[in-house]
């Protein structure tokens, strides 16, 4: 039991560490951001977890097309679902964070904030996986559904990466570290994340990703159980 689920415990420990250290440790004092810099441990981790989960989903879609094992399709769709959940959470928390930093302190209008390249990238990712689930919903044949949606998953995910790389070069960015963003950027710069913050940030990413994987495995097990019962009846 314990040997098998060490990573679940690890996820718990890391997240407890994230909350305790994330709230209590010293962080760099920056204007406009103030204490909200701590959102890095929560909001940014949502995006990291989302991308990792989508990556896992992509991997299983490829695996599905290589052997046509039904299991792999269940894996791909479950990871995509949990990834979308993290994406939505990331979007919501991002809106909260934006509304106290860029919008009020910088006098940016909401419309210009929403055109921010990272947000466009995130919106594209969410739209893609929305389309993925609509596509899945439109099939009745299980094998066909698995095959076609795997193809779309692979295609869309492969197109997502160049998009995320290109869009910031087209639209001016408010986000930190983006080429083309002006200096005097109120958000975090890579140099602002000092060693202390890294000590919390990376464990936080791992912790959030692990709990995402845990929830996805639960979904997978339920789906497989349902299928088994269906086959016996």
């Amino acid at each position: 039991m314990v040997q098998k689920s060490w990573w679940k415990i690890l996820s718990f420990v890391l997240l407890v560490y994230t909350i305790v250290a994330g709230f209590l440790l010293e962080v760099p004092r920056l204007f406009i951001l103030n204490e909200t810099i701590r959102n890095l441990y929560f909001h940014v981790c949502m995006w990291f977890a989302m991308m990792i989960l989508f990556g896992v989903s992509f991997f299983y879609s490829i695996k599905y097309l290589r052997g046509f094992h039904y299991r792999n399709d269940v894996f791909a769709s479950s990871f995509a679902a949990v990834g979308s959940l993290f994406g939505v959470l990331g979007y919501l928390t991002g809106v909260l964070w934006v509304s106290v930093t860029w919008v009020t302190d910088q006098g940016q209008s909401l419309a210009s904030v929403l055109k921010e390249p990272k947000l466009i990238g995130a919106a594209i990712a969410l739209l893609i996986y929305g389309a993925y689930f609509v596509l899945r919903g439109s099939f009745t044949d299980i094998d066909k559904r698995a095959r076609i949606s795997a193809v779309y998953n692979i295609f869309a995910f492969a197109m997502l990466f160049p998009s995320i790389w290109i869009i910031p070069r087209l639209v001016g960015s408010l986000h930190p570290g983006a080429p083309g963003s002006d200096s005097g950027n109120p958000a975090l710069d890579r140099n602002d994340m000092d060693a202390g913050m890294r000590m919390v940030f990376y464990p936080a990413v791992i912790g959030w990703t692990l709990i995402g994987i845990w929830i996805a495995t639960l979904k997978i097990r339920v789906a497989l159980l349902k299928d088994k019962i269906l086959m016996h009846v």
């Binding site: 004092r29 920056l30 204007f31 406009i32 951001l33 103030n34 919008v103 009020t104 302190d105 006098g107």
Partner: peptide
């Protein structure tokens, strides 16, 4: 918004709040 944006740096000239 503009008021906030201009007044905030005044509060905290030495240290970010």
């Amino acid at each position: 918004m503009v008021g906030l944006a201009t007044s905030l740096p005044l509060f905290a000239q030495e240290k970010a709040a």
